[in-house]
Design a protein around this nucleic acid. Structure first.
Length: 414
DNA sequence: TCTGGGGTCCTAGGACCC
DNA sequence: TCTGGGGTCCTAGGACCC
């Protein structure tokens, strides 16, 4: 660690909503939300009414009757966020992008060129505002963890620099929820014990935050909080798993529904794997029941797979197993597939043997034929775009599933 | 009549190995 | 009147982050 506040965290404010307001001046100053059934992003004008991301649409309307829902310009989100990242890259090559709208920078080697970290932070904000038109908040501190907290404190549209000599004074009045790794559950547990601020959490001032968290919450959260700083600012790592999910309200888990939804999800997941020459050994299926209770079933295969039809069939087998073991549940609300234990798979491999209880329909292609099917589909997609062929998922589209463009914004590099 | 979708990490028990 | 100790993998669940 350096001794100055040389780690910056840049975080675009209410990103999707800010883009909509940038694209349509009539939306500026108004309470808007991107999304529909669920709020994907809310402008600050909406947030003052209590509207926040992840909230259901009807709840948001209750809180803010004037709330205006706007459709998402998903490709613009990607383009503008990439432009912002390019600005960050002008100040240091050490940029670690954490998501579409957020990144860490290590400017310890840049101060002789651009000035002190607070100068760099101000310049970043000015350029992003003037050249791209978006508000971005920046935090600067000695560590990633502190820089991230600082950027949250800086919001909206601000800059906060944490002097290394006054870190504890900065932290102590802040709510515990700002600590990385403390979410709603832990926050409530702490509140039950009368702990609301980081200062209250840090019983002894001489003790490090991580040590205290480890003692107070079990090693888990302490380890998580410490983890963020044990890794230096560096290029983002490749994803360790690939998944897709679909929520569809309540539905009877009929074989037809399972096949249709899992087929669509497997198509997305396996297609991404093949596009990046990857394959995975472990398949996990998740089902969610009314009431948000969910279960998972997984299997680790002797050979990696990236075949749509095989993934579909294994996912069906796992889903049926989960349903059989939760026979009291009549309906499901979500299905998810994830593939993990990934490997590089530069050349085609033989089809894996199918587990004995996998439902194989008569007439479905086997072995090399499955590869042929996938690769002809992949070829058509490369030529004519993703939507040109594939599962015509009536169930998914009819149930108002999120558009693929939005899904892609959240995908990690494989 | 609970809230989307893409991810990471930690824990804990059991199997299995040496 | 039973059996140590360490390590790894698999599976299921859960919290969290963006």
């Amino acid at each position: 660690m350096g001794d100055g506040p040389t780690i910056l965290h840049a975080d675009l404010d209410a990103f999707y909503a800010s883009v909509e307001q940038l694209l349509d001046p009539a939306l500026r100053g108004r309470a808007i939300a991107v999304g529909g059934g669920v709020v994907l992003a809310a402008s600050y004008e909406a947030r003052v009414h209590g509207v926040s991301g992840g909230m259901s649409g009807w709840r948001a309307r209750q809180l803010c009757p004037d709330l205006l829902f706007v459709g998402g310009h998903f490709s613009e989100y990607q383009r503008l966020a990439d432009e912002v990242m390019a600005v960050l890259g002008d100040f240091t090559p050490l940029v670690q992008r954490m998501s579409i709208d957020e990144a860490f920078l290590d400017v310890s080697g840049s101060t002789h060129l651009f000035g002190a970290p607070q100068v760099i932070g101000a310049e970043i904000r000015r350029r992003v505002r003037e050249e791209i038109g978006l508000p971005v908040s920046v935090g600067a501190a000695r560590t990633k963890h502190l820089a991230k907290i600082a950027s949250q404190v800086a919001k909206p549209d601000g800059l906060v620099v944490v002097d290394p000599a006054h870190e504890l004074e900065f932290l102590h009045p802040l709510p515990v929820g700002l600590v990385w790794g403390i979410g709603p559950v832990t926050k409530q547990r702490l509140a039950d014990r009368g702990i609301h601020t980081i200062g209250e959490l840090a019983a002894s001032p001489s003790e490090s935050l991580e040590q205290f968290l480890g003692r107070a919450l079990g090693s888990k959260v302490g380890a998580l909080a410490a983890n963020i700083d044990h890794r230096r600012v560096q290029a983002s790592e490749r994803a360790g798993s690939v998944g897709a999910q679909s929520a569809f309200g309540r539905a009877l888990p009929t074989p037809e529904l399972l096949r249709e939804v899992l087929g669509h999800l497997a198509d997305r997941v396996a297609g991404r794997l093949r596009a990046r020459q990857r394959a995975g050994h472990t398949v996990t299926v998740r089902l969610r029941f009314p009431g948000m209770k969910s279960v998972t079933r997984s299997i680790t295969l002797p050979a990696p797979l990236a075949t749509t039809l095989t993934l579909t069939e294994i996912a069906e087998m796992l889903a049926l197993r989960a349903l059989a073991e939760n026979a009291d549940q009549r309906q499901i609300t979500l299905l998810a597939i994830s593939v993990s234990k990934l490997i590089d798979q530069p050349v085609l491999q033989l089809e894996i043997p199918i587990p004995p209880d996998t439902p194989v329909r008569p007439g479905s292609p086997a072995g090399a034929a499955r590869w042929a099917v996938d690769h002809s589909m992949d070829a058509v997609r490369r030529k004519f775009g993703r939507g040109s062929v594939g599962y015509a998922s009536v169930a998914l589209s009819a149930r108002g599933s999120v558009p693929d463009e939005f899904r892609e914004l959240a995908e990690h590099e494989l």
